[in-house]
Design a protein around this nucleic acid. Structure first.
Lengths: 329, 329
DNA sequence: CTGGTTCGAGGGAGCGCTCCCTGACAGGGA
DNA sequence: TCCCTGTCAGGGAGCGCTCCCTCGAACCAG
């Protein structure tokens, strides 16, 4: 593994280390003749700058940590999001010349590892994805003093990009009411997540403003929890005629329960979800939902971070939500 | 960002840099009194070793690149795999004290970036995930001379862990025949992927051996392609009574087409998939499929890589496939 | 022709850490 | 008592790169 060094290139090209460094880093103050002989030497030796050495000298790494909350085992709710966000964010960051280091922060253990990693100077900045509200990691990382953004609001101190959860929930509720539904229930996400809180608030507010009674059942963003919550709701209030689930996975679970209980969707009970994941297209019937575009979301968050590197603003960004009407409501 | 250095810790503790280094790295030859005073200084200063400096000195990084093939836009077929594999592999590698650097290799551009990154000495080893057979990246990386494994067979030179695709396909076909099905078609994956090739070979071999005619339609591992291929098959051979899809997503697509065409599953046409992704549980009817356990797969691949670090064997590993009988066949 | 100026190449001091080597000291055997 | 061995702390030379500074050459104006 005898990798060639800058010095070896310099020797071969018959110039100084400094000149090679200048050519490598694209400095303008270098004569074309030297540039050429250096580039040839680089090619011949297959020279690639040693990252660690460069980092050590420049205090820059050109890398960004993408920290994803790793939900407890079994809670795979945000998996569809996970893929979409990671892919899109990676693509964008790499296009900007940043190395992406993906880290999963689940256990206390792995949180410590993430903090350690960031503290070790491995990265120039951090992008957080969908952490729970109560999480301590955002605050910990914020204290390190390097650029930090969050996809989804977590800690007030951390610049974020978020969906318009309130507006989306409002949209969903009013759509149901407009169709003449009168007993509209909701299935919430885990209430330690800000997105779940906001979607619930959006629901209750819209219900109150229109003079309706809230019917709430708790879920945790998983398919099963949606099915369970739906069962609960049917037991509590057999006459309900609509359900707003705080995400699509729970809506899918609810659909299943409704089918099992003999209810027709949307004839007897209308169902509306949130997120517009791909699976929402393939349910029976296809799911009406609130579209919150994951890729746009990831893009906006990356842009926020890249902006921070350039000394840009750290103001939060709010993405508009819109209703996608399919068959279920 | 005035991070404390080893030297600062040494000064505060009133010992030499060497002693601090020994304590940090857990060397045994250090007096308890010194160890204690050093640890206190570390705590007080919040010292964290600078990764780049350490890498430079040791030529080790404690990091591993997890390279995932990024399929062309729209082809999200292996997303369910993507999540499962990335999560499991990350967990395992982190548990082994390795930093995980996730990299998506889609465009020619990003492949070059991956090669560059590895060449820059950022990582101690590489784990490849589900690359197409024709890919040049495995060979390129193999040439760098550091430990390299592949989840799924790609290049002969790269140690790999793979499913028993042939055995799984054989299992599927014989299950269908055992049920009295006579006209068993298959929907293939993209044939530039070795997994797709092998599943097709398994099918044709089993069909030939049992004296049946192969009926083949081409898909590309996506849901839509499965639906399209199924439509094609029904047109070509309206009397077929069973379909083996080379993955679950295509099986789900096929299910949809069958429903639309008025066929009952499994009464008129039996359907069997491959992979056993989570969604296979939620189809109507639930999908019979070949279970190829993603998490086991990821685990085995990580183990292979970790073994390589310790000078272990580089022999390929083959994971057994088994049949999961649900309702669709 | 000379002094001043500009431009670009080379020299070398770090960046923070590891690890080999030296040397101090203690303890035991002769 | 002296010497030898073993143990453990400290010193310092790198690891490969960047970047500041120096210095020489070339060029122009006077």
């Amino acid at each position: 593994m005898n990798r060639p060094t800058l010095e070896a290139v310099a020797a071969r090209a018959g110039v100084s280390k400094s000149s090679v460094s200048r050519v490598i880093n694209g400095a303008t103050t270098v004569a074309p003749s030297i540039r050429e002989v250096v580039l040839r030497a680089v090619r011949e030796l297959g020279y690639v700058p040693h990252a660690a050495a460069r980092n050590l000298a420049t205090r820059r790494t050109n890398a960004v940590a993408l920290v994803v909350s790793d939900p407890p085992k079994g809670l795979v709710s945000d998996d569809p999001m996970f893929s979409a966000v990671v892919r899109q964010a990676s693509r964008k960051l790499e296009a900007a010349g940043k190395q992406v280091v993906l880290m999963l922060a689940g256990s206390e253990d792995s949180r410590a590892r993430v903090a350690q990693y960031v503290a070790a100077g491995h990265v120039d900045g951090v992008m957080l994805v969908s952490m729970h509200g109560a999480d301590s990691l955002p605050a910990t990382l914020a204290r390190k003093g390097l650029p930090l953004v969050s996809l989804g609001r977590t800690n007030p101190a951390v610049p974020y990009v978020d969906n318009d959860n309130l507006g989306g929930a409002d949209l969903a509720v009013r759509h149901l009411l407009r169709q003449g539904r009168r007993r509209v229930a909701t299935i919430t996400g885990p209430l330690d997540m800000i997105a779940a809180q906001e979607r619930l608030t959006g629901y209750t507010t819209a219900m109150r403003e229109t003079g309706h009674r809230s019917i709430v059942s708790l879920g945790d963003f998983t398919r099963v929890s949606g099915a369970d919550a739906m069962r609960q709701l049917l037991q509590d209030d057999p006459g309900l005629d609509a359900v707003f689930a705080a995400n699509d996975l729970m809506a899918i679970g609810a659909l299943r329960t409704l089918r099992e209980s003999g209810r027709r969707v949307p004839d007897d009970v209308a169902v509306i979800g949130f997120d517009d994941i791909e699976a929402a297209l393939y349910t029976t019937p296809p799911l009406t939902t609130i579209h919150s575009p994951m890729t746009d979301w990831a893009t906006a968050t990356v842009d926020l971070l890249l902006g921070l590197f350039e000394g840009g603003p750290s103001d939060p960004v709010l993405l508009p939500a819109d209703l996608v009407v399919r068959t279920s409501a």
